[in-house]
């Protein structure tokens, strides 16, 4: 008697079924991850509370008008490409002391007495017009946040030999306490203080 072989199962149509599903998912898929600039809105303020008194030299004023032109410190028209550099200069100036009377030992600025005292005191104030285009507004925000990121990166390189952005990336994948401490330390040294004024009409 000849040996009977088990007949092979015809799997040819399996591919068709899989292809059908594959094409469905190919069409419906959107690969883009949502990215964006994260912000936290200020909480609602009691209108009776008086705003704290600030020295004018500690405030870096950025105005954007309805023609998307940028005015810095009330007297200099600036191109968006130069904004980051100017912001860094202002934050990193370190001309004086913070509220505890300590000098900024990590600042690399010029220590100009006419500019900001300390990164902890330096405030960026952004005011735009209602007619400003959203693109410009985002570009300005991006440059301001970028200035802080640059400074934090520089400090982190100096202290830990690794950039701040990398630190954040590493911290996301691990629960290492020393990483978190490092991040907190750098955040404390360059706190991000960006205030937004109500837009002009």
């Amino acid at each position: 008697m000849s040996r009977r072989e088990t007949p092979e199962i015809n799997a040819g149509s399996m591919a068709d079924i899989a292809f059908l599903l594959l094409i469905f998912f190919l069409v419906t898929t959107t690969m883009d991850v949502d990215t964006g600039i994260s912000r936290k809105l200020p909480e609602k303020q009691d209108p009776n509370i008086k705003p704290p008194i600030l020295k004018e030299k500690n405030v870096f004023e950025v105005n954007v008008n309805r023609r998307n032109e940028i005015l810095v410190e009330g007297d200099t028209y600036m191109q968006i490409a130069d904004l980051r550099e100017a912001t860094i200069k202002f934050i990193d100036n370190g001309g004086g002391v913070d509220e505890n009377g300590e000098e900024c030992t990590w600042c690399g600025g010029k220590k100009d007495p006419a500019s900001s005292d300390h990164p902890k005191k330096a405030i960026i104030s952004l005011q735009s017009d209602r007619g400003t285009s959203y693109g410009t507004y985002i570009a300005v925000q991006n440059e301001l946040v970028g200035a802080y990121t640059d400074l934090r990166n520089k400090l982190s390189e100096k202290l830990y030999g690794i950039s701040y952005t990398q630190l954040l990336k590493d911290a996301k994948n691990s629960s290492n306490q020393s990483l978190k401490d490092k991040i907190a330390n750098i955040k404390k040294k360059y706190p991000q203080i960006i205030s937004e004024a109500e837009p002009t009409k």
Binding site: D32, T35, I37, S38, L41, G135, A139
Partner: peptide, 19 residues
Amino acid sequence: INALKINYSTIKGSALDNM
């Protein structure tokens, strides 16, 4: 209404292109 966390959705690229 105290929905304070916001995110301006952007795509990666140079901000200078927005102008």
